[in-house]
Amino acid sequence: MSHAILLPERGVVEISGPDAISFLHNLVTNDIQSLAAGEARFAALLTPQGKILCDFLVFRRETTEGPLLLLDCPRSLAPELLQRLNRYRLRANATVADKSDAYESLAYIEEQTPQQENLLTLARDPRSPLMGWRAIAQRGTVDAPGDHASYDEHRISAGVPDGAVDFPYGDAYPHETNMDRLSGLDFKKGCYVGQEVVSRMQHRTVVRKRITPFRFDGETPPAAGSEVIAGEIKIGVTGSHWGKEGLALIRTDRLEDALAAGQKAQAAGVPLEFSVAKS
């Protein structure tokens, strides 16, 4: 039995027309040209300075009028994403529309392929095997009895940030949000907005700021947005949490220096234990 989880915080932007695929491919961080129906790509639209304006999952859907793209994005950012894509459209033969009122996003946290009717798209979540499947359907056509908390549990365990909570849109680089580790960056495709900055960061020895998992033992977790302190030095800020696990955007170099000096990290008085992967 497939248990869909409704993601009401997500919106959908549709791109259609003969140039839809090439138009988006030339703008975002991942390869859209090779995207096939039944697949999803994680990607982002960046500022020219290389910071994330909006991240999303991209699905390709085949129709009688040709392929179109569905972008599963934060619903609060859908109107702004629509405006920005239209600014770049110029002479491209493509139409961009906000379909958030007509479509809804669904997650399936399970290994087997969900057996559901009425889905417009269905694909493996490309960010992590722990994330299961993602789908888009006409609003109200799919029963979604699944628990959103189970989605957050898998997301946080997989180290997948939620941009609404875990990092600031417009002020975070893709590497800082682990897009390089979550299949969100293609370093072989051609130019796109912000590509030069992303390429420079890829070739650095160390990325100093990262979304980093933590564990805590207290009864009450630190609230999202709490300063993470090691000794007297601020090293980051907490984001989302579930159970005894959470994510924080931290300066990993400062954390490593603090640990080497025997100092412990804490936020809002709660001791935190970080798991830091090498960049």
Rank of each mutant, 00 (worst) to 15 (best):
T29L: 01
T121A: 14
P79Q: 09
G11T: 12
N26I: 04
Y108S: 05
V96G: 06
D19N: 13
Y103D: 10
L81C: 01
L46P: 13
S105D: 04
Q33Y: 07
V13T: 08
G50M: 04
V96S: 09
E117Q: 15
A40F: 03
L85R: 05
I109S: 11
A20K: 00
L130W: 05
E117F: 06
T121G: 04
A107I: 05
T95C: 07
A37Y: 00
R61W: 03
R124P: 00
T121Q: 08
L90Q: 06
Q116A: 15
R139K: 14
R91S: 01
T95A: 15
L69I: 05
N93V: 08
Q33W: 09
R127I: 02
R134Q: 11
Y108K: 06
R134P: 07
R134M: 08
G132M: 04
G11F: 10
R60S: 07
R87Y: 15
R134V: 10
L35C: 10
C54V: 15
Y108M: 13
A40P: 02
V58P: 05
N26E: 14
G38R: 06
L82R: 04
D31W: 06
V13C: 11
I15H: 04
P18W: 10
Q115A: 14
E117P: 02
R87W: 13
E62Y: 00
A107N: 12
K99C: 14
D125V: 14
M131H: 12
I52F: 10
N118Q: 11
G66S: 11
